[in-house]
């Protein structure tokens, strides 16, 4: 084997090595991006699912609970992490025609989900007439704020003495992926693993019934 052939062989190995490294890096990057995008997609899907359920429930606070006759405010529990109210899930349009359902939303503790890498995610519980449903959607913040029905500029301090004073309800949600994708880019969390959303709902049933008390 002459010197020329030897140089050709060495050169070929070098080129092959460089190309191989490029392909390996490309593959790794594609996998990283795929993981990050999958996590982002799941995050958005979870957020959409959760907010649709919340909106469906919150717009029905007090529906057919017959509060004007019973004098019982439709909102039964109003804490920062728990909200329980009377409603009618049957969809009946006849006030007082059916027994009221009791719906409760609350958030659990981060320690309840030790399996995930994220130390802050919690279960969200939706309880209907004592039957509890547990959801693991990557919720890291789930809190309620309640505004005074007579002065919506003011939030009501906890504990709320008169639940009939509750007007608008402010729900704050924050969801995170169960693990951190692309940890080297975690300075920009908005693009990869965190999502924040706030919903403000006003139940006209609640307002009407409370105003009539």
């Amino acid at each position: 084997m002459g010197t020329s052939s030897l140089l050709d062989t060495i050169g070929s190995f070098l080129v092959f090595g460089l190309l191989f490294l490029i392909v390996i890096r490309l593959n790794q990057s594609a996998h990283e991006n795929s993981d990050a995008y999958s996590a982002d997609y799941m995050l958005q899907r979870n957020m959409a699912t959760l907010t649709v359920m919340l909106e469906q429930d919150l717009k029905r606070v007090g529906l057919n609970s017959n509060a004007t006759l019973t004098g019982i405010p439709p909102i039964q529990v109003a804490k920062a992490d728990t909200f329980q109210f009377l409603t009618d899930l049957s969809g009946s349009t006849t006030p007082g025609a059916v027994a009221a359902d009791i719906v409760q939303w609350r958030v659990g503790k981060p320690s309840e989900i030790p399996e995930t890498a994220n130390p802050n995610d919690c279960y969200v519980y939706r309880t209907v007439n004592g039957v509890e449903s547990r959801m693991n959607l990557g919720v890291t913040q789930f809190s309620f704020r309640y505004y005074d029905i007579m002065d919506p500029t003011n939030t009501l301090a906890f504990p709320i003495a008169n639940l009939g004073n509750i007007g608008p309800i402010d729900v704050t949600l924050k969801l995170e992926s169960p693990y951190q994708a692309k940890q080297d880019y975690m300075m920009d969390t908005s693009n990869y693993v965190m999502l924040w959303r706030q919903i403000r709902s006003i139940s006209r049933n609640s307002i009407l019934q409370t105003s009539a008390r």
């Binding site: 907010t51 909106e55 919506p152 007007g167 608008p168 959303r197 706030q198 919903i199 403000r200 709902s201 006003i202 006209r204 307002i207």
Partner: peptide, 13 residues
């Protein structure tokens, strides 16, 4: 959509 819903909620109150 969340922002738009919030303004609608504010107005409808």
């Amino acid at each position: 959509a969340s922002l738009a819903t919030s303004y609608i909620q504010k107005a409808s109150g």
